[in-house]
Design a protein around this nucleic acid. Structure first.
Length: 562
RNA sequence: UGGGGGAUAGUCUAACGGUAGGACAGCUGACUCUGGAUCAGUAGGUCGGGGUUCGAAUCCCUGUCCCCCAGCCA
């Protein structure tokens, strides 16, 4: 064990480890994941979840799931349930530590009164645009609100009446009295409470004043005894306010630490944009397999382990970053390769007739369920005179280095026999090959030749008489460009038109007939697929999770195609 | 150019004054009943300029570039 092995994996873990060593928090580690229930969780949230729950787990601490529900106009209970489901699916358990900022409204209100009494907060009657005008700009200081000098008693009375519903929405706010000339705009008397008549998903109409994030967040952290409040970079400017409030109140003061959020190529992470895609029907929903949401990734067949491994692998730092999608795909391939049962499935069927194979004869051949895992056992696959192979696996006039079937060429049918192409039938109108005629070598049953001869290619196939029809949905990237956020135009114009391709006439081996939604398979030579929620007993539907690495396709791309 | 952050291979990420390392992507090759998997090899980097030092990605000075902040969103 070297020093490198014991060094914390990232700068946040280093801080927490240091705090543990010095006993700063009495040996305690309490983190929290604080989503706002106004949308579904995405892979960016997964980074934060893995960080917060991971640190707590590593150090014997705990991580709270706290819904930051301070804005009733945007939040819904349905999102709460979706978030719970996604965090649990990812593999994390918050136990009894589920909280809502809205549970703290009474305490938060009481602390606001405390601030007023201490002369550190005041009720401001300025309209929203006036507040903005008084705030100044990045380079000019703000101006004091004319209400800044209001007396404690008047503030107390006004704030009580705000709560009581005496004033219209937007007519008054409670503000912290800090410094209108601060170079940090967050300190120019930030708004703490606004009047908002909206039904809250949990407190209903009990309140008409709601705290803002900057006020509710540090106090919620404090109430819960959080030690390390880990958030993303854009809140760095808010830390002085976070600290100011906790100091002003003299209560438990967690340490806020910021890290760079995850960006993934070929997709967007903005909740606003994801919501727009869903609301306007550009995708089928929050769980559309093209979406970077955990629900979408789950539906597509990503495993929790793959996502966790991905989050561990990308690291945590402060510099802006965009992870290549290939990194995520690598994580899911690695996981699925080890655990996904194999199956034979033909996406674009091409009929094959084996001339010297007896009509009506059926043989049940043994196929390994997972070459990576002998314990996975074998299954029986029917073989007959008439089969389907992949259209891509046959060419009348193949280019060099093409190892598949072509006139006169011999290949192996996976787990089956060597077959040689002896002719084709074509559609006289289009010239398209409709049937490939072959002969088989009976001595090669199971896939190897007693005379030791080799074949360059092995094809997947299904028995025409036994194959089960299926729909397969192929997915590309959500966006056609690596960084859809970079373009100044409408991001919708950047959606990849090839992001979804539906193949309605596929054929899969009969053992797949029993597959249930959520089941994952590797279709040999093609990729990983997951049974979609739309699947029914009489209509199998598969989603492509990710393709297998394909060096032939790479060769093709490199040579500019055939 | 007010404040706050950040710059290490194509993309991420380590190195805490002492050989710039790892991963993904790329390329070569080996092996293979998945052109999969696996294995081996290979190429590629410290934002620029000064300085301190025996020695600098790391410390100092200076310049440049990138990100965030002017919601009664979070």
């Amino acid at each position: 064990m070297t020093a490198t092995d014991t060094r914390p994996a990232d700068f946040i873990r280093a801080i927490v480890a240091e705090d543990q060593a010095t006993g700063k928090w009495g040996g305690q580690v309490v983190t929290r994941f604080p989503p706002e229930p106004n949308g579904f969780l995405h892979i960016g949230h997964a980074k934060s979840i893995c960080l917060n729950f991971g640190i707590a787990a590593e150090l014997g601490g705990r991580c709270h799931l706290r819904f930051d529900d301070t804005n009733p106009s945007k939040e819904e209970h349905a999102y709460v349930e979706a978030i719970r489901r996604d965090v649990a699916w990812l593999g994390f358990d918050w136990g009894a530590h589920e909280y809502f900022a809205s549970d703290y409204f009474e305490q938060l209100y009481a602390w606001a009164v405390t601030l007023i009494q201490a002369g550190k907060a005041y009720v401001c009657d300025l309209a929203p645009d006036e507040i903005r005008a008084h705030r100044g700009t990045l380079t000019e200081p703000g101006r004091d609100s004319p209400y800044r000098a209001r007396g404690v008693d008047e503030n107390l009375d006004l704030f009580a009446r705000m709560r009581a519903g005496a004033f219209a929405d937007g007519t008054r706010v409670l503000r912290a009295r800090i410094d209108m000339a601060s170079p940090n705009l967050n300190l120019r008397d930030p708004v703490l409470y606004r009047i908002l008549r909206a039904t809250h998903h949990r407190t209903g109409d009990a309140w008409c004043v709601y705290p803002l994030y900057d006020y509710a967040h540090p106090l919620s952290d404090s109430i819960e005894g959080i030690t390390h409040s880990i958030c993303t970079l854009e809140f760095e400017d808010h830390r002085p306010l976070y600290d100011w409030l906790l100091d002003a109140l003299g209560i438990h003061h967690p340490q806020q630490i910021e890290f760079a959020r995850l960006n993934l190529s070929h997709t967007v992470m903005s909740k606003r944009k994801l919501l727009k895609l869903v609301a306007e029907g550009h995708v089928r929903g929050w769980d559309d397999p093209r979406m970077p949401t955990l629900a979408g990734m789950r539906r597509r067949g990503y495993t929790p382990a793959a996502i966790r491994d991905f989050c561990d692998a990308i690291g945590v730092a402060k510099r802006d970053n965009t992870i290549e999608m290939a990194r995520l795909e690598h994580a899911v391939r690695t996981d699925l390769n080890a655990v996904a049962p194999r199956a034979l499935a033909v996406l674009r069927p091409l009929r094959v007739v084996i001339e010297n194979y007896p009509a009506g004869q059926v043989e049940w051949l043994d196929g390994a369920n997972n070459p990576e895992d002998p314990a996975a056992g074998t299954r029986r696959i029917p073989f007959g005179r008439e089969l389907y192979i992949e259209r891509d696996d046959f060419m009348l006039d193949p280019p060099p280095k093409y190892f598949r079937l072509a006139p006169g060429r011999e290949v192996r049918l996976r787990f089956g026999y060597f077959v040689t192409c002896v002719g084709v039938e074509t559609d006289p109108a289009t010239g398209e090959v409709t049937t490939v005629r072959c002969t088989f070598d009976p001595a090669t049953r199971g896939g190897s030749a007693p005379d030791g001869r080799k074949v360059k290619g092995t094809l997947h196939w299904v028995s025409a008489a036994h194959a089960v029809p299926a729909e397969v949905r192929l997915y590309g990237h959500l966006f056609a460009v690596a960084d859809p956020e970079a373009d100044a135009g409408d991001f919708l114009d950047l959606l990849d038109p090839h992001g979804l391709e539906i193949l309605a006439d596929c054929r899969v081996e009969p053992s797949l007939a029993a597959a249930r939604p959520g089941d994952r398979f590797q279709f040999e030579r093609l990729g990983y697929f997951c049974v979609d929620a739309d699947s029914a007993a009489d209509r199998l539907v598969f989603d492509q999770t990710v393709g297998l690495r394909d060096s032939w396709a790479k060769t093709q791309a490199g040579s500019g195609g055939v």
